[in-house]
Computed example of a mutant assay.
Amino acid sequence: MDPIAHTLVGAALAETGLKRLSRYATATLIIGANLPDIDIVAMFWSFDHSLYYRRGWTHGVLALLLLPLLLVGAIGLWHRWRGRRVQSDESFRPGALLALAFLAICTHPFLDWLNTYGVRLLMPFDERWFYGDTLFIVDPWLWLLAAAGVVIACSKSWPSILAWLLLAVAITVLMFETEFATREVRIVWLVAVAVMVALRWRMTSQAATVTVARFSVALLMLYIGVVYGMARTAENIAAERHPTPIAAQSNPVFGRPSSQRLVLVYDDHYRVIRADGGLYEVPRKTPDAIVEQAMASESIKGFVEWMRFPYWQVKETPDSFVISFWDLRYQGPDEPERGIGFVEVELPKKMFRRECRESAIVFDICLKLLPGPS
């Protein structure tokens, strides 16, 4: 999921009453909910390196054990640096912080697993990708449900109220500008924001804010469960209406959890069913020498490691081969490019001429070494 979702989930957990368990509990939950994304530094190298390294080591089972210890250790050092001894400060409880850190860090790969991007949960022992195929990578309803308790609890002063209003306006502008949001999605968003504002003015006591936070977290878990069921139902219905596939995969649509774009996998082709009901098929092929050479390119190493339903086309120019790769989870050759799930590699023909010459030389040497007829 996106950083906003992770941050709001950590903050929402704090407002359910968990922040009372220890000093720095809120900071631990918010930092822990985002900590596995330290691998985002790979983005500064290149987008392809990000695909290769992201959602791996820092999201796997070993990280779930080590990161809570590192986080609580860092908070303990901060606590000491501020001049307060752990032994004399009863509000600082390392054991409680460790439990909260573990909880917060576990929410991160769980939320990442829910979308179609995938996460390598068994790293570093196994590099397999796991997919929940439940939520769009940016889910506005998850934002709202997680934010409900946080907004009510953390808007007690005019500066905080102004900050939340500015954030709400900024996200609303994005909702209205993005091509993914339909008119219905925008209307529901505005109504939901209005309800949250009304709750803020009605709920003023501390007990009420804790109740709202707990209720919102419960609704969030219910929402995830319902959408998960919708996605699996869509896959089953597609498998019944079409020739029985090897696999069926649901791709949720932004803001519309009841709508999915589906990929059906067969032995020799893929069938893609768009959310609007449109359908197209592309062949499922075995890579030839040109495609294998392209897939071995360092420039798309991460993409090849990450892609799930690969499809490619080869175009020949006078001096090169241009190989286009699509990951059908996100787009295909008959769909508009979305900025993810598509790469191109250009291979000069002279590379293949050199390889052919070298192969011919080796073949000629082998013929000379063979014994002649007796």
Rank of each mutant, 00 (worst) to 15 (best):
D2V: 05
P3Q: 12
T7K: 01
L13F: 03
G17F: 02
S22T: 03
S22K: 04
R23K: 14
R23C: 06
A27G: 14
T28N: 10
N34C: 09
L35P: 00
P36R: 00
A42V: 01
M43C: 08
S46Q: 12
F47V: 08
H49Q: 15
Y52A: 15
H59I: 05
L62C: 08
A63D: 14
P68C: 06
R80H: 09
R82M: 09
G83Y: 04
R84W: 12
V86R: 13
V86M: 14
Q87C: 08
E90H: 04
A96K: 13
L97K: 15
L97P: 00
A101Q: 01
F102Q: 05
I105W: 02
L111R: 08
L111K: 08
T116Q: 06
T116P: 07
F125Y: 08
D126E: 09
Y131T: 03
V138S: 06
D139C: 11
L142M: 13
L144V: 13
V150I: 05
S155H: 09
K156R: 15
S160V: 12
L162P: 04
L165E: 06
A170W: 13
I171P: 11
T172I: 02
V173S: 12
M175T: 05
M175V: 12
F176W: 10
F176S: 04
T178F: 09
F180M: 10
R183P: 07
V185R: 07
V188Y: 10
W189M: 02
W189V: 00
W189I: 04
W189A: 01
L190F: 10
R200L: 02
W201M: 08
M203I: 15
S205Q: 02
Q206P: 10
T209L: 07
T209Y: 00
V217Y: 03
M221L: 15
L222Y: 04
L222Q: 06
L222E: 09
V227K: 05
Y228H: 15
R232F: 03
T233L: 11
I237T: 14
A239H: 00
E240Q: 15
P243R: 02
T244V: 13
Q249W: 09
Q249S: 15
Q249D: 08
R256L: 10
L264A: 03
D276H: 06
D276Y: 03
S297W: 03
S297G: 07
I300C: 08
W312R: 04
V314S: 01
E316D: 13
S320C: 10
S320N: 11
F321D: 02
I323S: 12
S324T: 08
F325S: 01
L328D: 00
Q331V: 05
P333L: 02
F352P: 04
R354C: 06
C356D: 09
S359A: 15
A360I: 15
I361Q: 12
C366A: 15
C366Y: 12
L367V: 06
L369H: 10
L369A: 11
P371G: 13
S374M: 10
